[in-house]
């Protein structure tokens, strides 16, 4: 059982394991930097309104589309509002929506996927046909449909993005479970008479964690972009509150005359997604039991 993971170890041992993982994680400098960047974003998300140099919603009709200068470092937008302040304050909305929706989607999707993969049969059919139906609709359209039915608003956008996150987790976790299911240690566990639920959550689930982490980090990026696409199509969380996706989408109309309106929110989205991906890679390498 050497290749199983830390979750099924006694608590005392887990502490030392945690230390080991920390040490291992800190060896990966890119992941650490990514983590630091994410921490900075989290800091913005919490203290954004306090550190913003200007009121993010204060218009200045005499300074529309202002290019970056000493006063407005990132320029001003179509209402003369300070772009830097809006980006800082908007961090909360942007990260909040994507994190919340991926968490919800991942939890449901993973649960369903592992169940389907392990038990097969009727459960598998129901889960997989269900996700087939969800999956058969183009993501964005599904999100639009959900927002159209339940109405606009930040919680509804979270639900919409979460719903189309579910099938991807379900499918990937199912296939991961399938490939683990036929592996030696699971067969061994089964042969010594372990209960299904124990095999499922103690032996199979932990070894699918790495697949989940890779998918999870990627889905956060996807979720940020999905929220931006929803804004692009006019179904964003809130137009009057600062939000990276909304800023990028409205900025596209001014690409020629005020590229900074597209450039800065785009870059921030880019860095955020990059950071999550690098962190995910770092975690994967750290947690991957086979590479110890």
């Amino acid at each position: 059982m050497q290749t199983s993971t830390f979750i099924d170890q006694p608590i005392k041992k887990a502490e030392s394991r945690a230390k080991y993982y920390f040490r291992k994680f800190f060896q990966r400098k890119t992941a650490v930097i990514a983590a630091v960047i994410i921490l900075i974003f989290l800091f913005f998300a919490i203290f954004g309104p306090q550190i913003a140099p200007f009121d993010p919603s204060l218009p200045d009709y005499d300074n529309l589309y202002g290019a970056p200068d000493a006063v407005h470092w990132f320029g001003t937008d179509e209402f003369g509002r300070d772009v830097l302040s809006r980006l800082l304050v908007g961090t909360r909305n942007s990260l909040g929506v994507s994190l919340a929706s991926v968490l919800i989607g991942a939890a449901i999707g993973t649960f369903l996927g592992v169940l389907a993969g392990y038990y097969g049969g009727i459960i598998d059919s129901i889960v997989m046909r269900g996700s087939d139906i969800l999956f058969a609709m183009p993501d964005i359209l599904l999100a639009i449909a959900i927002v159209a039915i339940i109405g606009p608003g930040i919680i509804n956008v979270v639900i919409a993005v979460a719903v189309f996150t579910i099938p991807s987790f379900a499918r990937i976790m199912r296939s991961a479970t399938l490939s683990v299911k036929s592996s030696l240690y699971v067969e061994a566990a089964r042969s010594i008479g372990c209960k299904n639920s124990r095999i499922l959550w103690v032996h199979i689930f932990p070894s699918t964690v790495q697949s989940m982490i890779v998918n999870f980090t990627m889905r956060i990026g996807t979720a940020i972009l999905a929220a931006a696409s929803l804004s692009f199509l006019g179904y964003g969380a809130k137009v009057d509150e600062p939000d990276w996706g909304a800023m990028l989408s409205s900025g596209r109309n001014y690409l020629d005359i005020a590229p900074h309106l597209v450039y800065f929110p785009g870059l921030l989205i880019f860095i955020a997604v990059l950071a999550f991906n690098l962190l995910g890679d770092g975690l994967r390498d750290t947690l991957d039991p086979k590479l110890k």
Partner: peptide
């Protein structure tokens, strides 16, 4: 109002 950029811009202006 309609959820297209120009309309959203107008509504935000009224809000301000």
């Amino acid at each position: 109002g309609d959820n297209i950029t120009s309309e959203e811009k107008g509504m935000q202006f009224i809000q301000q």
